[in-house]
Design a protein around this nucleic acid. Structure first.
Lengths: 260, 260
DNA sequence: CAGTGGTCTAGACCACCAC
DNA sequence: TGGTGGTCTAGACCACTGC
């Protein structure tokens, strides 16, 4: 029942061999694999077959290839993202983006891209219940842990609501981050929803997150609502799948069903 | 900044062409792609290059290959999994596993594998705070939507707690599913936690979920707790990434921080 | 048996990197 | 300039499907 009879192809077997050597410490984290020519000779197959085997390890995030240089064994552990905790972090004076990284004793860094007025994508506008051609404030960021990019996060706010909050228009939003600023201007977020997909990265995401085309990403569509269920922010996160572990908790819902 | 200068390789361009034709309806959902030989001739490249291009579409879940038969355009839309709602479904008399499928007007079916006493994996035993070699009740299921496998779900319960609940030892757990039974025997789940990873499927998972080796899966590690935070169930879900969209909602936490 | 995709090879050329 | 990986080809053989 559990048996898989299929005699596996050479490149899969070779991928297993290499993975095994990594686990055994023969190719320790951070080190270079032997070149594909060397491996081909050692294992008695063509270089194309080795290349394909390495491709298996790449999609899993086990190794990282730099053209012209060689193939390096990865070492970063998965980062735990606790959804509820990260948005409570403003109490600690930290922005949501940095919570997870500093907890791992890694250096957190943020790259700021476009910050300013924009026409939001149609689905963002719909989610924010924006009418007509109302513009949005967009804040595009890229987060790093020890110089490895870990996440792209694009936040959108209805322009009219945040127009007068200068700190949201700057890179540094001040103590407590953007959530604290929303609270300041009278729109404290009280409810959140997230929708999580997995997909392959676009060419741009491959470039910005230093990913292969075959490495899946999480896409998290995050929405913050105020007390009267008004959507105040949409944030789209794109995160390399092999780097993250997502955590959620909730209580049993007091169902609307009739206990009568 | 957004520009990707890289002249893309032929197989990526060809993958784009084929994807475009699918979107245009030239290759409608459910239909066969032309054979790789035909495509190679039409596009003036070798069959290996076509094969690689098709590989790109396979990892994304856009097509499905059956050896000896051909390559078929997929059609299933993403299934939305609302974490909180599905566990409230016992009120409706439905098991958690079938909520999402029936909502899409698809036929839901469940395959039952092993149901009975077992030695749980070490991390499951730890999560359930089981001591020594206490056995567990395991329930292994596979869920389908319209005959497409959509999910593997292995649930574990501490044996001593569920020993006397005969319905949990059968395939059909009765109205409201296993959660209703836990409630019956005095352990109503009140809190849930889930941890979500993405990874490539094992050979067994590839086989049981009808997946390619390059198609990522969600792995959800689900834990149910009773009122006194006693873990009562661990369920490990493995789900094809391209089939699902995961949904979570929560309220702002009344932080322990000092508002004094 | 014919048609499909799966895999493998040898050889080639290219882009990129470090020196 | 030499070494690394990225890609492509032509040809071959195999496994699986359906007739």
């Amino acid at each position: 029942m559990t048996e898989i009879a299929t005699p596996r192809s050479q490149y899969v077997q070779i991928a297993d061999i290499i993975r095994h050597r990594i686990e055994q410490g023969i190719y320790p984290p951070g080190s270079h694999l032997p070149s594909e020519d060397q491996l081909a000779q050692e294992l008695g197959v063509s270089r194309v077959t080795i290349n394909r085997a390495v491709g298996v390890l790449r999609s899993a995030g086990d190794v990282r290839v730099r053209r012209g240089t060689g193939t390096i064994v990865r070492s970063i552990p998965r980062i735990r993202r606790d959804a509820a905790a990260r948005y409570a972090a403003r109490e600690l004076g930290t922005g949501a983006g940095e919570v997870e990284i500093t907890r791992l004793n890694m250096r957190s860094r943020t790259d700021y891209g476009e910050i300013g007025q924009t026409t939001p994508p149609a689905d963002v506008a719909r989610t924010l219940r924006m009418r007509g051609n109302e513009p949005a404030l967009v804040r595009r960021r890229r987060f790093y842990a020890d110089d490895h990019p870990t996440q792209l996060a694009d936040s959108y706010y209805p322009w009219s609501l945040v127009e007068d909050c200068p700190q949201l228009h700057q890179a540094d939003t001040g103590r407590g981050g953007s959530l604290a600023r929303l609270t300041d201007i009278g729109y404290p977020p009280l409810r959140y929803s997230e929708d999580i997909d997995v997909r392959m990265p676009t060419p741009e995401e491959q470039h910005r997150l230093d990913l292969d085309a075959t490495q899946p990403v999480f896409q998290i569509w995050h929405v913050a609502y105020t007390h009267d269920d008004r959507p105040i922010e949409v944030c789209i996160h794109v995160m390399p799948g092999h780097l993250w572990s997502l955590h959620y908790e909730w209580d049993e819902q007091p169902t609307a069903g009739p206990p009568s």
